[in-house]
Structures are given as C-alpha cells and as structure tokens.
Design a protein around this nucleic acid. Structure first.
Lengths: 228, 228
DNA sequence: CTGCGGTACATTGTTACACATTGTTCTTCG
DNA sequence: CGAAGAACAATGTGTAACAATGTACCGCAG
C-alpha cells in the first residue's frame, strides 16, 4: 500500500494546496476584504518557503481574489459598487450567450438530459436553503452551482471556463455583502428563473441578474471597503 | 533628465519585462506553437534566475499563451479546430453584450465621441492594410485594436478586460493560421461591419464573427499542431 | 503648528545554490 | 520483442542573502 505521508500528498503541488487553503479562508470571510497577506508570515505559519507562497498568491491573483501591486504587497480584494456592476455585466454577457446557444440548439423546450444537471443543482439549492438557511456561504455556493450548470448546457468550453473563473469572485462578493436576501427567496427566485429561461431566453437572464443586483446595490452603495 | 538605464528601468519588474519579451516572440511566430520553454535555458540566455523566469512564465500562462503541466514543463499553446470555435464563441458573448449595452444607451446612432475611437482604429487598419498588406502580424494587431475599441464603447470595465485578455490569444491564433484572407478583405469587411453594427446590433456582431470563423476553419480543420 | 526633506524600517523582487519529486528515456533482462 | 528498472532531465521546493522599492517616522525650517 505504502500510504503516502499525509503531509506531502502525491500529485498536487504544495503551492496548489496552499492556494486552496487560502481561497477557502478568504471565501469563508476569515480573511476579510483588504487584509494584507504578507509572504513571510504565510510562509512561516504554513511551513513553506516564500517562493512557494508567492506562486500560490500569484494563482489567487489570477482569480482576482487578491490584488497584487509591485513592491506593495498583496491584499484580499475589496469591492466597490462600481465593481459589482461591472462584474454583473460580465456575468450577464456570458450567461446570456450561453442560454442563447442552448436555445439555438434545442429551441424553447430543452430535452431532459440537458436540463438534468441544473435541475439537480437547483434541488440541492432548495435543500440547502431549507436545511441551512443561515449558512450564507453554503447557500451562495449552491447558488453558484445552479448558474454554472445552466451555463454548461451551451457546451462552450471557454464560456464555461470564463464563467467558472468568476465563480469564486462572486462567492467572495456575496459573502462580503450578505445582502437582505433570504435563502428561501434565493431558492424561489431561481426556481422561477429556470422555468422562464427556456422560453424567454436571454431576456430572462437579464431580468434575473438585474433583480439580483438590486438586492445588492443598497448595501454596496454605502461602500464595503472601497479602496479609494 | 537623468535617463535611467535602458537595461534596468524603474517600476516594471524584471519578470514583467521578460514576459513582455516572450509574448512578443511568441506572437511574432519566432517561438512556434508547441515549442517547449525550458526554465534553465531561458534563465541563462536572459541573464535572469530560474525563479524570475518562472514568474514570467506563470504570467504568460494566465494569458493562455503557454500551457503549464506540473513537472512536465511549459510550452507554447497550440490550437485545435475545436479551440478556435470555443474561443470565437467567447469573443461573441463579450462583443455582442458590449454592443447591446452601447445600443441600450445610445440607440441605433451613436454620438461621434463614442464612435471616434473605433473609427480611428479603423482608419489605422485601412492604412496598415494598404501600406503593409503582407505583414500579417501588423494587420492582425490593427484588426484586434478595432474590435477592442468597439467593445470599449460599452464602458464596462470587466467585459473590456476579459476581451483584452483574449487579445493576445487571438493574435497568436491569427499568426499561426494565416488564413486565406487578404488584408484588403479584412479592412473592407470591418468597414462594413462598423457601419452595420449601430443599426443591427448583436446580430451584426454574430454575422461578422461567423464570417471570420469561416475564413479560418478550413485550415484549422487540417490541424495546426494539435496536441492529440 | 504645519509642511518639507531625509533617514530607517518593512516588504517585496531577485539571485544563487542545493535537494526532492516527478516525467522521460534508455538499458537490460526475461 | 516487451516489460521492469536504472539513469537522466526538468520541474517543484527550500534556504539564505542582497537589491529595490514603498512606508512611516523624525527633525528641521518657516
């Protein structure tokens, strides 16, 4: 058997594991927006070298979970209201096009094998919303999975990937904002959305995203941690 | 005055400069698709350390100009026909949404201060097409600038950025494929496209991109450097 | 007291060298 | 001829140090 040491598993590199760890801590809110991440500190607490820490941070920077300025360090990304709007516009571009492609292929009534994945994700969202209505991170994660599954129906790898890239960023946004949006509401809105989207297509996507943005604006307008 | 040394400018880091250099060499075709980039070799020829080379390569990897596999090295990205399609779909998503946003704001006839940037880029494309019709890289660069300027009219930073990210990738694609598409044709097609887009909006975008893809498919179908 | 310049400190960028880990290739043996 | 295993190549990671830059503090002139 030769069970590999727990400390040093096989394939994944150390840097990848540290990146995963930090991602989790950022998304859980343990590392708040604006928190500076010092290389040396992370290196010593994680028991790794500064180089490895740097590559892990570089990875997170590509996911926009942290921002890096030369010689000025890295800190957890913080959002302004403007950022929220811009991010939603990008999401909208990707999701609307994905829905358009799927409808181009299957029309207004998609076959079951196409809808199955996002229906399943939807069920999971409803389950989480009813069993853990207060664990906002769980809800946000399940929510993201629904959208991702919907986008995946288009079968366009790059759109899917671009959307997935936004995923953790959206999670971070939602975790930080904690809008006045109950888990039950989220579930209901998405159930309705999924019913509409096959018939109404892109316009349903835009309505849905606009609605979501509305729930977020009020808070973000006050500025969460605006950098300037 | 105190002209800083050319070799070691102030702000930009060494890694950033190496990344720029490599990007140029990849996009010029000097480093062909599939070429492995060895850390040690680059380090010695560039007079830098392996670590610095690694960070530069990591940056290029986020631009998808190179792909990285753990313990297996980095090599210049090579495209398959499927990659081309997926990339065009993503471009379409971004550009169509950008045009939609601009039309949502300005209707079917955009004010001159909005059209000015892409009109200027268009003039540059026509100039390059007539003066350097055989320098495909120049043409491709000018071509990319036109699209980027069009996308910028939407004023959506994230869409713009996502599109810009695709830029060098598109350049790489065009440089490698060298389609049967004369510089003059490119210029004419885009002049017509820009005239249509204000009136027809997203559908004009889709028509234009489809047309472009048609010029590329035949070659790519034969496989440029397909990895498998 | 305020505003300016300059110095010291903190942090990141970069280097050099060494070793560990993994992928690839070549050799050897059945 | 094919497969197990050794040798090699390349990347991943560690340690230690120095260089370059940003930031904060401090004193001085007005």
């Amino acid at each position: 058997m030769s069970p590999r040491r727990r400390d040093a598993p096989p394939g994944p590199t150390e840097a990848a594991r540290l990146a995963d760890d930090l991602r989790g801590r950022i998304l859980s809110g343990e590392l708040a927006a604006g928190t500076p991440l010092r290389e040396e500190a992370l290196a010593s607490t994680a028991g790794l070298s500064r180089h490895t820490v740097r590559t892990a941070l570089a990875r997170l920077a590509t996911e926009r979970l942290v921002i890096q300025e030369a010689y000025r360090g890295i800190r957890v990304t913080s959002f302004t209201a403007e950022d929220v709007r811009a991010l939603q516009e990008l999401r909208c571009a990707l999701e609307a096009e994905a829905v358009r492609l799927t409808r181009e292929r299957y029309g207004q009534s998609w076959p079951e094998e196409v809808t199955a994945p996002f229906q399943k994700a939807m069920l999971e969202l409803e389950r989480v919303a009813s069993t853990h209505p207060d664990d906002w991170r769980l809800v946000a994660t399940a929510h993201a999975a629904v959208h991702r599954a919907l986008v995946a129906t288009a079968g366009s790898p790059r759109i899917e990937e671009a959307y997935a890239r936004l995923d953790s960023e959206m999670l971070l946004l939602l975790v930080n904002l904690r809008p006045t949006y109950s888990a039950e509401e989220v579930a209901n809105d998405h159930r309705a959305f999924l019913n509409e989207v096959q018939v109404d297509g892109e316009s349903a996507v835009r309505r849905h995203l606009d609605h979501g943005t509305q729930q977020i604006w009020p808070r973000s307008a006050r500025g969460i941690d605006a950098d300037h």
